[in-house]
């Protein structure tokens, strides 16, 4: 039986998620025996022709050429998996989606005619059907290996659906919100990192994006009313690496309108 072929693709991103594959130091050479690494430019000059059994896609779509390229990638891929916040939610560069585009264009200082880009940074799933989305900014190496192993075994990948809060309790970390009054997105953020930030006395900042059906309004109201976080800071907290994930986007907008209404009432 021939080995399944694996391709890795990069769109707008920092390279960190595909680098995670090279950071699986103990597993990399074994993985290369189990699958044929057929297209992975970061690692090899050799490119085997498609189609490919599995494609890992990093990055978001931000240019007209990339919007075409992802359709081509989909057409030559058996299973297509997005890795990381850029591919899954548009990434940090999706902040442009919320910006006043006029304000950005006013920053032109050189030759914008040399550059071609779209007004929005969008997730892969907004362009083509995606078979599985792996979260994280960046993805965690064990989860990446779990996804690839599951595919090889023909089963569904096991990734936890619960909140970071639960991981925090599991590792016995002190709750930074209760103990120190530190704002934390743990209650609404999908697990997967093992609660890295609370373990370092820091509030979760939402690298893994919203968990399934998060109660974002309840958390953000409590951060506002009980911890005194202002509306602008709340909106910024939700607008980072998963700013365009629907639940974070909606709650950040709600904070904007609350702030606007308050300002109107005082003037």
């Amino acid at each position: 039986m021939s080995r399944p072929s694996l391709a890795v693709w990069k769109f707008a991103s920092c390279d960190g998620c595909q680098l995670s594959l090279l950071s699986a130091e103990d597993e990399l050479l074994t993985l290369a025996e189990e699958v044929h690494i057929a297209h992975f430019l970061e690692a090899t000059r050799e490119v085997a022709p498609g189609p490919y059994d599995v494609s890992l896609v990093e990055g978001s779509i931000t240019t007209p050429a990339d919007a075409e390229r992802i359709r081509h990638v989909r057409s030559i891929s058996g299973t297509l998996i997005t890795i990381g916040a850029c591919a899954t939610a548009g990434g940090i560069q999706a902040l442009r989606n919320l910006a006043d585009v006029e304000a950005y264009t006013n920053l032109v200082y050189a030759h914008p005619e040399y550059v071609s880009t779209l007004a929005e940074s969008t997730s892969i799933a907004q362009h083509v059907p995606v078979d599985f989305e792996l979260r994280g900014c960046p993805v965690e190496v064990p989860q990446l290996l779990e996804v690839v192993s599951a595919l090889l075994a023909g089963r569904k990948p096991v990734t936890p659906p619960h909140a970071v809060c639960l991981e925090c309790k599991l590792r016995g970390a002190v709750c930074v919100m209760v103990a120190h009054g530190t704002p934390c997105l743990g209650p609404i953020t999908q697990a997967g990192c093992g609660a890295r930030c609370p373990a370092f006395n820091r509030g979760c900042y939402g690298c893994f994006g919203p968990m399934e059906t998060p109660n974002t309004a309840s958390l953000s109201d409590r951060l506002h009313d009980e911890l005194g976080v202002d509306d602008d800071d709340l909106a910024r907290l939700l607008r980072t690496f998963n700013a365009d994930a629907p639940e974070f986007r909606a709650e950040a907008r709600r904070r904007d309108s609350i702030a606007a209404a308050r300002e109107e009432a005082t003037t």
Binding site: A12, T63, I92, Q93, R96, A99, L107, C137
Partner: peptide
Amino acid sequence: PPRFFEAMLRGRTYLEPPDITARIC
């Protein structure tokens, strides 16, 4: 593709660039 970090940083607080600019690379 360009990602416009310098434009995105405007209006963020002085505490945010370490986490935001890390994502350049």
